[in-house]
Structure formats: C-alpha cells, structure tokens
Design a protein around this nucleic acid. Structure first.
Lengths: 144, 144
DNA sequence: ATACAGTTGAAACTGATTATCAATTTAAAA
DNA sequence: TTTTAAATTGATAATCAGTTTCAACTGTAT
C-alpha cells in the first residue's frame, strides 16, 4: 500500500492533511521496524531518537490517523495496548497471528483459508463479510 | 459446562473458593441474559437489582474468577471493554462472532470450519494450536 | 459455636488513551 | 516570497476500564 514518504504525502494531501516532520518520522519508524508489532509507547521510544521533542499525544494521534488512512492496521494482541503493523503492497494480502502462550512471541501466517467459511456465513446468516480478525493461541516450536 | 448454582458451588469448593450471595447473583444475571455479551458495567447494573449493595470491584473480581474457572469466557469485541459469555454444555462447542459495522449487533456462528486451517498451521509453522479467536466484520441482513 | 481463610465494598490508584488549548507550522493563494 | 487560514503540535488535564489496598465481614470445615 505504501512504500515511500512521497507516497504518504499524496495520501495525506488527498484528504487535506499535512505532511509534518513528526508524521514522517513515525512512518519511518514503522517501516524500519516492519515485522514487529509496535505499541504506541514503543513507537514513541523509537521515534524520539529522530525527533526528541515529539509528544506522546502526537504519536497516538498519528497512529490513529495512519490507521484511518489504511497505511497501517491496529491489532489487538490482548496485552493491554494497541499495536500496529504496516500494510503491505497487495490488495488481498491476508494474514493471521499465532500467539505463543508461553513466550508471547508472535508469528504471522501468510495463508488465508477462511474463504470457505466466509461463503458459508454469507449464505447461512445473510451477513456480508467485509473483514475478519483471527488469532490462534498455542505453543510455538521453541516452547512446546 | 454449568447449569445450576449447586454446580457452581462444587466448582468453587474444588479450588477452595466460597459461594457468596454476590457470586450467586452475578452468575444468575449471566444465565438470565444468555446470548447477550454483557460488559462488566452491564452486569453491575443488572445485578444491582438483586444485590443493591454490591460493589463494582466485586463484579470485576467475580467475572475474572468465573473466566478462570471456565464458567464464562471473556471476549473482546473491540468496543473498549471486556465482555463475557456463558460457556454452554459441550466440550467442543465452538462459535465465532459476526459484528455488524453499522448497527453493532452481534450474531453468533455455530459452525467451526477452522480445523483445516489449524492443521495447516500445525504442519507449516510447527505451532501447536490450543485455541483461537475469530471475528468477522461486515453488514448484517438488516443493514446491508 | 469457633476460627480462619476467603471475600467484600469503598476508595485510592494504575496505565492506556483522549480532549483541551494556546502556540506553531504547513501549504495553497496572492 | 509574503500572506493567510486551516491543520498540527506539545504539554497537561481529563477520562475510562480495570486493579489494588485494607479494614470489616462472612462462608464453611471443625
């Protein structure tokens, strides 16, 4: 979906938003740490290296904005805070999270075998599925 | 899993816990409102009718306890608070939630077609799946 | 009935997130 | 390039769900 800061500038302009150094630094941080699932506080800590005067409220606001714009996605890993991940360049990229109950590590599953289930739901419940969130809990290879 | 207060008494005794009027009233409330997904505050409001002197902290504590005991299950519907549902009488009862983006109504799907996906994960990621949480977002029959 | 461990309600306290607001900055127009 | 208006910022206060503390109280095994 996004691959550069120029790209972000366009996305922001389209909606009347401005590209500020803070927003730039926050997106840079997320791109740099792709694959991790950073919380707001973690983004704040990382981004302060580039942008020491940034306020925590700005980080909260920017992450929310980037989520609204579809640049990142908020995920809930049941650890008491919101986390975010970068949306990658593919319309129908789907992935789920494997959460290890022991070490807390998070793996990503790149398959999507939920189509069958979605069709079933569409048919039996007259419910138009737009999105889904799937989490698996268990033990990772190291912990079992 | 649970079908009466006597049943609860046994479950509690087994772990050294006591059956108090507050716990009784909270479970009664949940049983009475089966099918809804009550939040802690909602349980608190309902239970005050039977038990006007009850404290909110007790409701928080009791719901957590009942979840630990496997009597109820905590669910996260992304509305900013924990909700709970009664565990019904079947070991392998599985269901997912359909959340309407427009009216917020929550439907329950009684099927479980995730086994295939779990097997796939087991095999490809060397991850031992113990549990999963699945939410579908979209439009219900009334809203679409 | 007694005793003790578990439980309670009230209130203080967390920790994550949001709202407020005056000062600042971006970006489009002049 | 200067002007300008709207958007953005950082600091701080406020909120909100949930937890902790603690003295008083209550189930339940004996």
């Amino acid at each position: 979906m996004i691959d550069s800061i120029e790209n972000l500038k366009e996305i922001l302009k389209e909606k009347g938003y401005k590209l500020t150094p803070q927003r730039r630094a926050i997106l840079d941080t997320i791109i740099k740490n792709q694959g991790e699932h950073l919380s707001t506080e973690e983004v704040y800590d990382y981004v302060k290296k580039d942008c020491p005067e940034i306020g925590l409220a700005t980080v909260y606001r920017t992450l929310q904005l980037l989520d609204d714009l579809g640049v990142i996605t908020k995920i809930n890993l049941d650890d008491g805070c919101a986390r975010y991940e970068l949306n990658i360049n593919s319309e129908d990229h789907q992935h789920h999270h494997l959460i290890c109950s022991k070490c807390g590590n998070i793996l990503e599953v790149e398959v999507d075998l939920l189509e069958h289930l979605e069709n079933e739901i569409q048919k039996n419940y007259d419910f138009e599925v737009k999105d889904h969130k799937v989490k698996f809990f268990g033990l990772c290879s190291k912990c079992k």
